[in-house]
Nucleic acid binder design. Structure first.
Length: 308
DNA sequence: CGTTGATCCTGGGCGC
DNA sequence: TGCGCCCAGGATCAAC
């Protein structure tokens, strides 16, 4: 589940590795992930140079000298740079206990849908076993704007402000978790970081967005940014498939407070973490720190002080 | 406006 | 060892 921190980690890695590279030729599979006809990709991509790599929410935007290649990694997407002088790993090795991938580099396999071969001998490989990813080639900037038009604020940018966040929650009767997942208020938050941010803010994931107290919304506003920044700092969260542009797993899985920690003690109070379903997603929370009911105004000031 | 359920897809985990 | 079954889930869409 590449979310903002994973996509940002990949972006930073790719910038350091392949900025300025020129595409020599292209290989691709006839897969649903392509939102642009294969003939167009094969016709337009060769000879283009990688000028910049941007990110918007969970979308990666590879800026070429003429076009824009937009990639969404879906759930299991991997974007790695393949080096000719580097030995390929054997298959996809997994850590015997954690199940984490221990792969540095692998050559293209049946799940590799796009290969950009560069003039210098290296390649950029887009692999996605579950095929929930998307790949667009856009010739006009206006097409890019339209594609990303539904996205809310970038939580790690200056446009992420408390007034805008409060405004995004206003009148929304949906659960706060569903609101965070839907990308329209804040872009880039997925299942993992939603649970982490809600825990940090001591808010039950099922609470109605417009029923949160003002101080809870403020805490959540901060917690979202902190959870995502932490994810970037640790190089993303590898639960199973995520690897960075160098084929390596992230480190944030060891830092998670509640996600995937069902039955384990809450890091704050020791009560066992529960797993429920909210907004059709597995949801982890502490039943003690994140009570289902709206907090009483009389204890609001108290809990505010405890939480931060 | 809002929610629910289906859809896409495959590897992994589990029970037998 | 192997088979069948079920599940995970980001985004979108139909139905109500």
């Amino acid at each position: 589940m590449p979310e903002l921190p994973e996509v940002e980690t990949i972006r930073q890695g790719l910038r350091g590795q392949i900025l300025g590279a020129t595409i020599r030729d292209v290989e691709l599979t006839g897969c649903r992930i392509f939102q642009t006809p294969a003939e167009l990709l094969l016709e337009r991509l060769p000879q283009q140079q990688l000028v910049e790599i941007d990110r918007r929410g969970k979308f990666l935007i590879v800026r070429l000298n003429r076009d824009r290649l937009v990639i969404h990694l879906g759930m299991t997407g991997q974007l790695t740079v393949w080096y000719p002088e580097r030995p390929d790993s054997e298959g996809f090795l997994r850590h015997p206990v954690t199940g984490l991938q221990r792969v540095r580099q692998h050559s293209a396999d049946k799940h590799t849908h796009l290969q950009l071969h560069f003039e210098d001998g290296r390649s950029l490989l887009f692999r996605d076993p579950r095929k929930f990813g998307k790949c667009h080639l856009l010739e006009k900037e206006s097409e890019l704007t339209a594609l990303l038009a539904h996205l809310g604020m970038e939580p790690l940018s200056d446009e992420y402000t408390l007034p805008a966040f409060l405004n995004g929650l206003k009148g929304r009767k949906t659960s706060i978790k569903a609101l965070l997942l839907n990308q329209r208020v804040v872009a880039g938050v997925g299942n993992i970081y939603a649970d982490e941010a809600l825990f940090q803010a001591s808010i039950h994931p099922s609470r109605r967005a417009n029923r949160l107290r003002r101080y809870e919304k403020e805490r959540l506003f901060q917690a979202i940014r902190l959870a995502l920044e932490k994810g970037v700092t640790y190089g993303g969260t590898t639960l199973r498939d995520y690897v960075n542009s160098d084929g390596r797993e992230g480190g944030n899985q060891d830092e998670l407070l509640v996600y995937g920690r069902t039955e384990q003690p809450c890091p704050r109070c020791g009560v066992r973490i529960e797993k429920i379903v909210v907004a059709q997603r597995g949801t982890h929370f502490c039943p003690s720190c994140q009570p289902r009911s709206r907090p009483n105004p009389n204890v609001a000031v108290l809990s505010q002080n405890v939480a931060y």
